[in-house]
Computed example of a mutant assay.
Amino acid sequence: MDDRTARSALQRHWDASDANDFDVEHEIYHEDALLDYPQSGQRIRGRRNIQQSRFLQPNKKRFLVRRIIGAGDLWITEFVLSYDGQPSYAVSIMEFRDGLVNRETQYFAEPFDPAPSRAHLVQRADGAIID
C-alpha cells in the first residue's frame, strides 16, 4: 500500500468513526487485528470484537482529527475524542500488514489547565473541544 492510499484509508476510517458508521469504520482492520489500550490494560483481539466493543459504547462520540502522520506500515493519528461533549486528547498508532491494520495502540489524556509557573510563557492553543 502506498502512502497516499494509506492516508486515504485512515481518513475514511476516522470520518466513519465520527459518523458512527461501524461497518466502514472497521473495514481498515485485519480479521486478526489487535487493539491495545495501555492505560486500562485492555487488549481486544479480532476485527469483530473491536467493532462490537465500540458499538456497545453507550456515550455519544465525536472525533476531530488534528493530524495524520506516517509512512509505509506505520501511521499515527492525533485526535480529540469527545464522549458526551467531554474531550479527551488521543493518539492512535496503527501498524499495517498487507494493506490493513494489524495492530493499533491508543493513548488518551484528559485536558488540564496550564501550570501557573509557566503561564506567562505560553499562549493558549486551540483546544479543539467538540460536542
Score class of each variant (00 low, 15 high):
D2L: 01
D2E: 07
D2I: 06
D2C: 07
R4E: 04
A6M: 12
S8L: 07
S8I: 13
A9L: 13
L10N: 03
Q11T: 10
R12Y: 00
H13S: 03
H13V: 00
D15Q: 03
S17D: 08
A19K: 08
N20Q: 02
N20F: 09
F22E: 05
D23Q: 13
E25T: 01
E27K: 12
I28Y: 00
E31L: 04
L35W: 10
D36Q: 12
Y37L: 13
P38G: 02
P38W: 01
S40D: 08
Q42T: 09
R43D: 04
R43I: 10
R45T: 15
R47W: 01
R47C: 07
I50H: 03
F55Q: 09
L56E: 13
Q57L: 11
N59K: 12
N59W: 14
N59G: 05
K61W: 11
R62H: 05
F63M: 02
F63Y: 13
V65C: 06
V65T: 13
R66I: 13
R67F: 12
I69T: 13
G72F: 03
L74K: 09
L74I: 15
L74A: 12
L74C: 10
I76P: 00
T77K: 00
E78V: 07
F79M: 14
F79T: 06
V80R: 01
V80Y: 00
S82Q: 05
Y83P: 00
G85F: 13
P87I: 03
Y89S: 02
E95N: 08
F96E: 05
R97T: 06
R97S: 07
G99M: 00
R103V: 02
R103C: 01
R103K: 14
E104D: 08
Y107E: 01
A109P: 02
E110K: 14
D113H: 09
P114M: 08
A115E: 13
P116D: 12
R118V: 15
R118P: 04
H120F: 06
V122H: 04
Q123R: 11
Q123G: 11
A125M: 04
A125S: 11
A128S: 07
I129M: 03
I129E: 10
I130L: 07
D131M: 03
D131N: 11
